[in-house]
Design a protein around this nucleic acid. Structure first.
Length: 303
DNA sequence: GCGACAG
DNA sequence: ATCTTGTCGC
């Protein structure tokens, strides 16, 4: 696997890329996303820039939008400061657009394309997925609240009827931004070292994912346990009645405004029957969500 | 130009 | 998810 010891610090890697943009040149959010290995990370690029830990050595003002316009800037003086910095480096700007944009555009990043490496490492993992039903005596779920790079995790254990048995709280640091279709690397890696027992009902998708490797599938395979993914919004697919298809293949179900798909060690059929039953009894994510949120807020107050 | 974009 | 430093496809 590309992530060693369950760790990959994409923030650090990203800031290394930004430092490569030379004085007098600019790059774009999309160019940096491509250097990370997937253009879908464009918004995450903006997110990581907004948390620049050291503007003195990481020139985040040199990152602009794909059409040559300036884009945003998290600074007391706002975008005005970004324009000022760029002009001080010799950039000509007219009505918020860089003149000769293509000539000063830097794209020649030295990079290993980490997101591409991650995708490549996924193929061997996917071989281990199983859709064979297995028994379980408990259910667990979790949720995470975020404040910048602090993650507040709540894990909840239920009995088979969704009565709460126990819960645990934990605060950790996150090294990976939210990037659509890479949720596992942000959230899943935080949980991996403490394997729970029972059926995991995971906030997110299972095989209802472009690479059939949503966070529920990842956790199910790596923990060798049954999991189901349950998302509040649809990542991909077409809904017909209560079934969700991707390229004509049945990948999940739409039940009670949730999008449900198998993670690992469970069949489509059992996923449907079980969730149809459970979602009537209650919301498997809500308790963890409220615990995590409350945990974060109480920690904020302490500071 | 508008809507997508798991959390 | 939080509270706003995009890009792409229709």
């Amino acid at each position: 696997m590309y992530y060693k010891n369950n760790k990959i610090d994409l923030y650090a890697y990203f800031y290394g890329l930004v430092r490569q943009i030379p004085y007098g040149m600019v790059s774009t959010y999309g160019d940096l996303a491509i250097a990370l290995g997937d253009v879908i990370a464009s918004r995450a690029v903006g997110e990581m820039l907004s948390q620049n830990p050291d503007p003195g050595i990481i020139p985040c003002h040199r990152v602009v939008k794909g059409d040559g316009t300036i884009g945003g800037f998290t600074h007391p003086e706002g975008v005005r400061k970004k324009v000022e910095l760029l002009e001080s480096e010799g950039m000509k700007i007219e009505n918020k657009k860089i003149i000769n944009f293509e000539k000063v555009r830097f794209r020649d990043f030295q990079t290993e394309y980490p997101l591409k490496k991650l995708r490549e490492s996924e193929t061997e993992l996917y071989e281990k997925i199983s859709f064979e039903d297995c028994d379980f005596e408990k259910i667990f779920s979790y949720d995470v609240s975020y404040n910048k790079r602090d993650a507040y995790i709540a894990k909840v254990e239920f009995d088979i009827n969704l009565n709460i048995i126990d819960y645990k709280l934990k605060k950790v640091r996150v090294d990976f931004p939210y990037i659509p279709t890479y949720l596992f690397y942000r959230e899943g890696l935080l949980l991996l070292d403490e394997k729970p027992s029972g059926l995991g009902i995971i906030d997110g998708n299972g095989i209802l994912h472009p690479r059939k490797l949503g966070i529920a599938t990842f956790l199910g395979i790596l923990w060798e346990m049954p999991t189901i993914g349950i998302a509040k919004t649809l990542l991909l697919g077409n809904i017909k009645d209560d079934k969700i298809y991707v390229n004509g293949e049945l990948r999940g179900f739409s039940i009670k405004k949730r999008f449900v798909s198998p993670g690992n060690r469970i069949s489509l059929k059992k996923t449907y029957a079980l969730m149809k039953d459970l979602l009537v009894k209650g919301d498997p994510i809500k308790p963890a969500h409220e615990l995590a949120k409350h945990f974060m807020e109480s920690e904020r107050q302490r500071q």
